[in-house]
Amino acid sequence: MSVVNITNVNKTYGKHLAVSNLSLEVPQGSLYGFIGPNGSGKTTTIRMILRIIHPDSGSIHVLGADSAAAANDQLGYLPEERGLYKKLTVRRMLLYYAALKGMSPAEASSEAKRWLTHFELTNWANKKIETLSKGMSQKVQFIASIIARPKLLILDEPFSGLDPVNTEAIRSTILKLREAGTTVIFSTHDMEVAEKMCDFVFMIYKGNKVLDGTLASVKSQYGADSIHLRWDGSSEQLHQIQGVQRVVDMGRYQELQVAGDPQEILRTLVSRGSVQHFEITQPSLHDIFIRIAGPEASMDAQSSKNQNAEFGAAS
């Protein structure tokens, strides 16, 4: 059963096409990662799911409902740009947000207490938001998005700006909520997090859906054309090896996209230096992202456009 069902949705801002003919289904209980470069249409898609903005055409059904009031109380939302009432106390602010989701004061109070304890913020319950550290504020905002026990939780960049301890606290809570049956959509720029956590990945680029499916199915589209390498040579040397199409230097290792025989490449590498690690693998999500949205992809697209134009002119 789909919790979110988007069908042929279009959205423009003036002359700018933000989302083009988008269709997407988010299965119940899944953890769906939304990835894409800045300005690609992620936040617009999320806002349309939340009915904050409306599509120009197409339909969006959330939790089986097509009206805002019917589903909004069952949605939790953590916006990318956090905002809390600085002058309110933590507890009062959480109760207010819970009341907006239709929770009774008694229920809201009990949930607030539970989550403040979970995130070790009990001592801060009666302190004003403005006295909290950035990490604490982020956790309070996260609690505000889950306090009403949503069936669908939408998180826009939930880990941005968090230290590893707070990241882990929120990450484990998200996974527990998913285990308890909550469907989670989250957008992120951190491909490693998306790769580790998500059941499904959806990538939007320039308003168009370019990837959608389980992580395995997405990766299988690209085949095993990647090599993770650790050797004592330089990146420049790798570029000169026949069959190596692209090199991404990750610091302690390099990620190669290859077109030729990997065994031949290994032989060349061994002849030119000392190889500590050589692994033939599927491309990482990070690598796929770069292939789609990186500068080389843009240049490729531009050059193919130019070639087409030249061809058109010649013929």
Partner: peptide, 10 residues
């Protein structure tokens, strides 16, 4: 302070 976006989701 970006509170509005959070509110209009409810």
């Amino acid at each position: 302070q970006k509170i509005s976006e959070f509110l209009v989701s409810s």
